[in-house]
C-alpha cells in the first residue's frame, strides 16, 4: 500500500526531446489511476520513470514519503506488467512467478506457498509446470499478473497490458484486473491508449497529451466536463461533437443565428455537445441532416451535419431514422464551451 507523489517530474532525452513536461500529481493509497493519451504522449515514459527503468531528469518522485529518484527498480517495492508480458521463456510458470521471490532470498517453502496462492487466485494452478510458449495469450497475461501479485508490492504498474489480447479477452481481463486490484487494495498506475479501458477501470484518469497533463479527474468528470477540446475529442466513442459557434447577446449561436443556450461573453467559441445529449424531436428547433446511419445493435449513431458542420447523434435502438432531415433538440445544460484559440474549457 502506498501513496505516490510526483513533483515537477520531467524527462528530457539525451537528444533534447522533452518527453514529459514538469508533472505534478499525487496518488492516494489503494487508488487505481489510469494514464491515458495518444501514442507518443509520454504516458509510458512517465510510468517507466516511476518504475525506475527510465532516469528522472528533474523533479522528485516519492513512494510513501521516501524519495526514490535514485533507488534501483528492485528496491522500489513495485511490480510491473508489460505489454508483451515479458515472461522468461525458458522457465515454467511456477518459476516465472517465483523468480522475484527467489532473488529476494525467500525460503523455498515460502516461495512455493506464495506461488500456489497466487496461482489459485489467477486460476493458474494446472498450468504451473508449463512453459509460457504452451499458454494462450490470456493465460500468459495472468502469469504476468501472478508475477506481480506474488511479491505483494506497494505499487502495481501496468504498461498497456491488454493491448495484445483480442477484444473479447480484453473485456474479460479488464474486469479481472480491476476486481483483483480491488481485492488486494494495491495502489496502481495503469497506462493505456484505450479510452474505454480508462473509463471503465480508473478511480481517477490522467489525460496526457504532448508530454503534459490535460486533465485529472474521475471518469465522470473527464467525460462530462472535459478541460479541453483535446480531452473532449479523445474520451468517449464517438467523441464529443465540436462545432464552431459564437457568443452574442448572452446566447450561444451556431450557423445562421441558431441559438443553443445561454452564456455570457462575446466572440467566437467552440461548442461541445456529446452525441447522446441530442434527442430527435419533431418539435425540435434545430435541423440535423442525416447522411449515414451506423447500426450498433443496442443503439444507432447518426452521422450528418448540423448547421453545415459535421455532427453525430446517438439514439436508442427503438428510434428508427433514415437519411434526410430530422428535427432535434439539445438537452438543457449539456453544452460545453471551449476557447477557440487554446482549446481550454471556458
Amino acid at each position: 500500500m502506498a501513496q505516490i507523489s510526483l513533483q515537477n517530474l520531467r524527462k528530457i532525452y539525451p537528444n533534447g526531446f522533452e518527453a514529459v513536461q514538469p508533472t505534478n500529481f499525487d496518488i492516494a493509497d489503494g487508488e487505481f489511476v489510469v494514464l491515458v493519451g495518444p501514442s507518443g504522449c509520454g504516458k509510458s515514459t512517465l510510468l517507466r520513470m516511476v518504475a525506475g527503468l527510465e532516469d528522472i531528469t528533474e523533479g522528485s518522485l516519492s513512494i510513501n514519503g521516501r524519495q526514490v529518484n535514485n533507488v534501483d527498480p528492485a528496491d522500489r517495492d513495485i511490480a510491473m506488467v508489460f505489454q508483451n508480458y515479458a515472461l522468461y521463456p525458458h522457465m515454467t510458470v511456477r518459476k516465472n512467478i517465483g523468480y522475484g521471490l527467489k532473488n529476494r532470498k525467500t525460503a523455498p517453502a515460502e516461495i512455493e506457498a506464495k506461488v500456489q496462492e497466487a496461482a489459485k487466485m489467477l486460476n493458474l494452478v494446472e498450468y504451473l509446470d508449463r512453459k509460457p510458449s504452451q499458454l494462450s495469450g490470456g493465460q500468459r497475461q495472468r502469469v504476468a499478473m501472478g508475477r506481480a501479485v506474488v511479491r505483494d508490492p506497494a505499487l502495481f504498474l501496468f504498461d498497456e497490458p491488454l493491448s495484445n489480447l483480442d477484444a473479447k479477452l480484453r473485456h474479460q481481463m479488464r474486469i479481472e484486473i480491476k476486481s483483483l486490484q480491488r481485492r488486494l487494495g494495491v495502489t496502481s498506475i495503469y497506462v493505456t491508449h484505450d479510452q474505454v479501458e480508462a473509463m471503465t477501470m480508473a478511480d481517477r484518469i490522467i489525460v496526457l497529451n504532448g508530454g503534459q497533463i490535460e486533465q485529472i479527474g474521475t471518469p465522470a468528470e473527464i467525460y462530462h466536463a472535459p478541460a479541453s477540446t483535446f480531452v473532449a475529442s479523445f474520451m468517449g466513442a464517438p467523441p464529443m461533437n465540436l462545432v464552431e459557434g459564437r457568443l452574442d447577446t448572452g446566447q450561444v449561436m451556431i450557423g445562421d443565428g441558431i441559438a443553443l443556450g445561454n452564456a455570457e461573453g462575446t466572440g467566437p467559441v467552440t461548442v461541445g455537445i456529446r452525441p447522446e445529449d441530442v434527442e430527435l424531436n419533431d418539435q425540435g428547433s434545430l435541423m440535423f441532416t442525416v447522411d449515414l446511419v451506423e447500426e450498433l445493435g443496442a443503439h444507432r449513431l447518426l452521422h450528418g451535419r448540423l448547421a453545415g458542420q459535421p455532427f453525430t447523434v446517438h439514439v436508442g435502438k427503438e428510434v428508427v431514422v433514415g437519411a434526410g432531415d430530422a428535427a432535434v433538440n439539445i438537452k438543457p445544460d449539456s453544452i460545453r464551451l471551449f476557447d477557440v484559440e487554446t482549446g481550454a474549457a471556458r
Binding site: 525506475g52 527498480p73 528492485a74 508489460f82 508483451n84 522468461y88 532473488n103
Partner: peptide
Amino acid sequence: PEELVEAARIDGA
C-alpha cells in the same frame, strides 16, 4: 526483447 531485462531488473536480478 528489452522488456525481459526490465522485468528481471524489477524482479531483483
